[in-house]
């Protein structure tokens, strides 16, 4: 088979997959680049959509990530799902309110794998995953400050205030660092 016809065949498979996803998930699926599909959904539909995607062959949860959109006042929660049957990455994006960040947990589908990803997002961004039984800190044991990955958390000032002593001759130098 020549390179061109092989490419064409891949493209038709891809188009078919996108059509399939659109009809079953009920939302638009965008073709981002080769083997990368993006979709944006309402946060209330996350468990439903993930269950359907799982049934369509996207059985591997790669990771969950959170982006902090400070000006918009939103947290964007992103789920990356990989399919071994289609060899495609499906990225599900959803935006939740920044002041009370809450979203349903998907540990009913992916179990411990989802639980660990959600624990990380919870400790770094303060996103509450409802239904996750274990949201204890993963890395930040004994941490009592705000979630450190938030855009409006000034960690440099926090560290100077909480962890250093200006009267200590060894640590005085840290207060003289230019911004």
């Amino acid at each position: 088979m020549s390179e061109k016809s092989k490419h064409d065949k891949n493209q038709t498979i891809e188009e078919k997959l996108i059509e399939d996803l659109k009809s079953k998930l009920g939302t638009t699926v965008n073709y981002q680049k080769e083997r990368r599909l993006w979709m944006t959904i309402d946060p209330d539909l996350i468990v439903e959509t993930c269950t359907k995607a799982y049934e369509l062959g996207f059985e591997h949860l790669s990771t969950i990530s959170v982006t902090d959109w400070l000006k918009e006042g939103k947290h964007e929660v992103t789920y990356h799902l990989w399919s071994y049957t289609h060899n495609h990455l499906l990225t599900i994006k959803t935006k939740i309110d920044r002041k009370s960040p809450k979203i349903s947990s998907i540990n009913s589908i992916w179990g411990g794998n989802a639980e660990t990803c959600e624990r990380e997002c919870h400790e770094l961004f303060g996103v509450k995953f409802e239904g996750n039984p274990n949201l204890t800190p993963l890395f930040l044991e004994d941490w009592d400050g705000p979630p450190p990955f938030l855009k409006d958390f000034n960690w440099r000032e926090f560290v100077k205030k909480e962890m250093y002593d200006q009267n200590n001759p060894r640590e005085k130098v840290y207060f003289e660092v230019k911004k």
Partner: peptide, 8 residues
């Protein structure tokens, strides 16, 4: 030195 999670 300015990380929130290292031992000083």
């Amino acid at each position: 030195w300015d990380s929130y999670n290292t031992v000083k």
